[in-house]
């Protein structure tokens, strides 16, 4: 049971990462900000960090099984 839940969460997280790192959503974040730089780099780094944190939470929490 636990294993099933873990796989489900990881697959969902991967799909989420793929969607977040793919063009349709990225185009939304591609806006000019200070000094005409795009906001894209900041958004990507933040999303990246958040995904790593989620992965750590998912993988380390289910240490029991």
């Amino acid at each position: 049971m636990m294993k099933q839940a873990l796989s489900g969460r990881l697959i969902a997280l991967t799909v989420l990462a793929l969607v977040l790192f793919s063009p349709p959503l990225l185009l939304l974040f591609d806006r000019p900000a200070a000094w005409n730089f795009s906001t894209l780099p900041v958004v990507i780094y933040l999303v990246w960090a958040a995904l790593i944190m989620l992965a750590a939470l998912i993988l380390e929490r289910s240490d029991a099984d």
Binding site: S22, P23, L26, L27, D30, P32, A34, W35, N36, F37, S38, L40, P41
Partner: peptide, 23 residues
């Protein structure tokens, strides 16, 4: 910022070779 965006470097998606598809 005072030099680069005018020179075309602004870290947007359109700078990637091939654009969004290339990405």
């Amino acid at each position: 910022g005072s030099i680069l965006p005018d020179a075309g470097l602004h870290f947007g998606l359109d700078q990637i070779p091939g654009g969004p598809l290339g990405w």
